[in-house]
């Protein structure tokens, strides 16, 4: 998607109403509320990077195929490049910048990625980590995956082995091929 016609003067005009091709949207990002007047074409990823200066979330393919833009919206991992920001009014967004605790201590997954050297160029890493955070919550809530035994009882937490981690993180591509260490890093925090 080329450009973002609303960036600039109109973006923070709180008096404007939802008419025409723009709407007022309130997003709480990493705990901080932001009210923005946004062109309907703007996707969450671009708003995070360009309006809120949160450049941790990366634009890889911009078509929902690589996972570099993965963030948590209302606790669920999603592709920020495919979510129109206007649809998210009232939502809570957490990006890789918001994973550390209040004292600035990195999230256990961030530490594990460092300890395991789970990246080379690092471009996919914020998406990998946000995806892993969401994935661990899904497994704890009993969500099955393609490799979960269909006979496993529904509603119970799913034990994650390497095959489960690989399948559940398949929406995050790593062109450097750091997958073995990514799997080990996730195994470290289970």
């Amino acid at each position: 998607m080329a450009g973002h016609p609303d960036k600039g003067g109109a973006t923070h005009d709180d008096s404007a109403r939802a008419t025409g091709h723009r709407s007022e949207v309130t997003l709480t990002v990493n705990g901080t509320p932001h009210t923005l007047l946004l062109d309907h074409r703007r996707v969450l990823l671009d708003v995070l990077r360009e309006d809120l200066d949160l450049t941790g979330s990366k634009k890889g393919c911009d078509h929902g195929q690589c996972g570099a833009c993965t963030v948590l919206v209302d606790g669920r991992r999603v592709n920020g490049c495919l979510l129109l920001a206007v649809t998210l009014d009232g939502s809570e967004v957490v990006t890789v910048e918001g994973l550390a605790d209040g004292t600035g201590e990195p999230h256990p997954l961030q530490k594990a990625f460092l300890d395991r050297d789970a990246f080379q160029c690092g471009y996919c890493t914020p998406g990998q980590i946000c995806s892993a955070v969401g994935m661990l919550a899904e497994a704890a809530a009993g969500h099955p995956s393609h490799v979960t035994d269909p006979a496993a009882p529904s509603g119970r937490p799913v034990r994650l082995d390497a095959a489960e981690i690989r399948e559940r993180l398949s929406g995050n591509l790593c062109r450097c091929g750091a997958y073995p260490h990514i799997v080990e890093a996730v195994e470290d925090v289970i």
Partner: peptide
């Protein structure tokens, strides 16, 4: 039905 859904797309896409 559960198996078909889980065979499609990625965790992020299925969440949306």
């Amino acid at each position: 039905l559960s198996q078909a859904l889980l065979a499609g797309a990625s965790g992020q896409l299925r969440n949306a």
